[in-house]
Computed example of a mutant assay.
Amino acid sequence: MNKYKKTNLCITLTALIAFLLWTLAVTKFDLQAIGPQKSIVGFASLNGAFHDFTGVHMWLYEVTDWLGLVPAVFVLGFGLLGLAQLIKRRSLFKVDFDILILGVFYILVMAVYILFEVFVINYRPVLIAGRLEASYPSSTTLLVLCVMPTAIMQLRKRINKPVVKNVVTVIISLFIIFMVIGRLVSGVHWMTDIVGGVLLSTFLVMLYSYTENIEALRGRMEWTKKK
């Protein structure tokens, strides 16, 4: 295992452990009924103070909610790319491996989302349409931080012009920053929800990167042997 892969694996495992420990802490530390309808929230003093500081900005919630469709467009785009390759090449095994891995990654992200919708850690600090909604980890943060960085990885490999490649990377990066900060200060999540989303998405993206790099290395080794 080379140095890059070791570092990648180390970051992946560290992010997973950090997320699990953070989630455990959220369910055990400083639990108080500070949420709507007296819902229990972990890190209550910290979350309550930060929520009071930022306030609630529903317009920002609406903007980031609608912009949450952008990652869905990328998911659809790469899904159509994989489908086009499948139809043209007439074999699932002839579809680009990184696209197949990306598809599995999307399924994993959706499974994680459903998991935390079923097993609720805490609820939002505000009612949405008059009802409580699961808040941990922030699903929008998770979606953006999983789909957009992997989109950058894919596009940087598929765009040949360096200038275009760099411009696309900057635009997507700025979008990511806006979405995470926007969700944080909108007041529709507790601060710990955003942190949880960042840690979980870091683990998932690094896992994707690690898996993709292993296969890329294997492919280069096989190509070298054929020569």
Rank of each mutant, 00 (worst) to 15 (best):
R90E: 02
I121R: 13
M58R: 14
L100A: 00
V164N: 10
Y136I: 06
M148V: 13
L86K: 00
M58A: 14
M153D: 12
L80F: 15
V95I: 08
V167A: 06
V167H: 08
P71V: 07
A72H: 01
L81N: 05
L100V: 04
Y61D: 15
I159L: 15
L81G: 00
A111N: 09
V104A: 07
I121K: 12
K165S: 12
L155N: 01
A84I: 07
D65H: 14
G77Q: 09
T169I: 13
L155H: 00
P162E: 09
L69H: 11
Q85I: 11
L132T: 13
M153L: 12
T141M: 04
V163N: 09
R156T: 13
I99G: 00
I99L: 15
K94F: 13
L143D: 01
G77S: 11
V120Q: 13
L80Q: 08
F93C: 09
S135M: 04
T141E: 07
V109G: 08
F116I: 04
F93Y: 00
G68N: 07
V70I: 14
V147F: 02
L69G: 02
Y61A: 14
I121D: 05
V73A: 08
S138A: 12
V104S: 15
P149T: 12
V144G: 03
L60V: 11
Y61E: 03
L67T: 00
P125V: 09
L143G: 03
L80I: 14
S135T: 08
L132K: 06
R89V: 00
D96I: 02
L60S: 05
I114F: 14
T64V: 12
S135E: 05
